Simulated scan of single mutants.
Amino acid sequence: MKGFILLVLGIGILHCASAATHSLRYVYTATSGIPDFPEFVTVGLVNAEPISYYDSVIRRETPRQDWMAKTEGSDYWERQTQISIADEQTFKAGIDNIKLRFNQTGGVHIIQKMYGCEWDEDTGVTEGFKQYGYDGEDFVAFDLKTKTWIAPTPQAVISKHKLDRNIANNEQKKHYLTQTCIEWLKKYVDYGKSTLQRTVPPLVSLLQKTPSSPVTCHATGFYPSGVMVFWQKDGQDQHEDVENGETLHNDDGTFQKSVHLTVTPEEWKNNKYQCVVQVTGINEDFIKVLTETNRALIIGVAVALLAVVAVVVGVVIWKKKNKNKKGFLPTSTSDTDSDNSGKVVQKT
């Protein structure tokens, strides 16, 4: 998938996602050519909520949730810090290495890695993933079933072969992703259950800048991030002339999402349009009906309400390609990457 998004530490989830599905993932990002931005950043996330943070400026792993600070002691944070310091050096070298493969010199470049796991509390089904990317493109990804690496670009083939040859390391990776990661995920969910398992209903508004602009259905303040926002016309789901926005993270830990409908005044007048919002874990639909009588009000408040649609700018990553791709991070594609070291050093 091409292009970057500014990571609002929340990721869109299909409406069918279960409220009992939990995830633990770590995102590593190394950059070059970006002034006044840390060259290396790591973020730990549980259910899309940040739990830990490290960057090359502060050089300390720090908690991002009160319940993490209270449950894990200094030994834990020192261990995580040392892992991040080691990865920082590897990732910085990795940028130079991969730039050579792509025949690049200057400019802005970004390497990322993401790994982690998911656990369905109801069914017991688990899943693990580890992926790398470069400049917004997939680079290499670990296949749990075959314990081999997938290289979608010619420049990644060298890394794939080196990673594939390290059979013992790939065995360890699978063990971490399918067992160790799941054990820690369950601990974290238990630590933060009062926060992670809460539900908060959305505030839904209809917005329109001008009479000829698309009508925006904006849902905000909801939790968890699993949400479905869609338009209906005369009781039927409307798919044409609809543009879906990303699920984004608010400053207070809740989420927001917008869906835009292009509709003519005649269609608006002669048909019943409504926006429906469904949040995972809340057994209630939140509906806003679009009518001719409320059109003036919608236009009048649009500018004021849109002004508060602010997101927390975090780490640069690219969107998921599909449900199975879990997000994606560019890898430290250095041939000296810890993936080739014969030793699996993962955050817990």
Rank of each mutant, 00 (worst) to 15 (best):
T210R: 13
L144H: 04
E246P: 03
T31S: 04
S258H: 03
F40H: 06
K187W: 01
K193R: 15
S32H: 07
D96Y: 11
I51C: 04
K323F: 15
V259H: 02
G314N: 11
T31Q: 08
G94S: 10
D87H: 12
F328C: 12
V303N: 12
E240F: 09
S56T: 12
A86I: 08
A156R: 02
M1L: 04
I110R: 02
T220D: 07
M68L: 15
T71H: 11
E39F: 07
K323L: 14
Y134I: 06
V276K: 10
I111N: 06
Q131T: 15
N340I: 06
T29I: 08
E240Y: 02
T62K: 15
V215N: 06
S338I: 09
I150N: 07
T81F: 06
M228E: 06
G44P: 05
D339A: 11
K347V: 00
Q155Y: 13
Y28D: 02
L144E: 12
N170G: 05
L9F: 14
Q256K: 04
V315L: 13
T90Y: 01
V27D: 01
L100E: 15
F230D: 04
V303R: 09
N270A: 05
L185S: 00
D252R: 08
W119A: 06
G106M: 05
T146G: 10
V242I: 14
T216F: 04
W67D: 09
A69E: 15
T126F: 00
H260P: 00
R60A: 13
H22P: 03
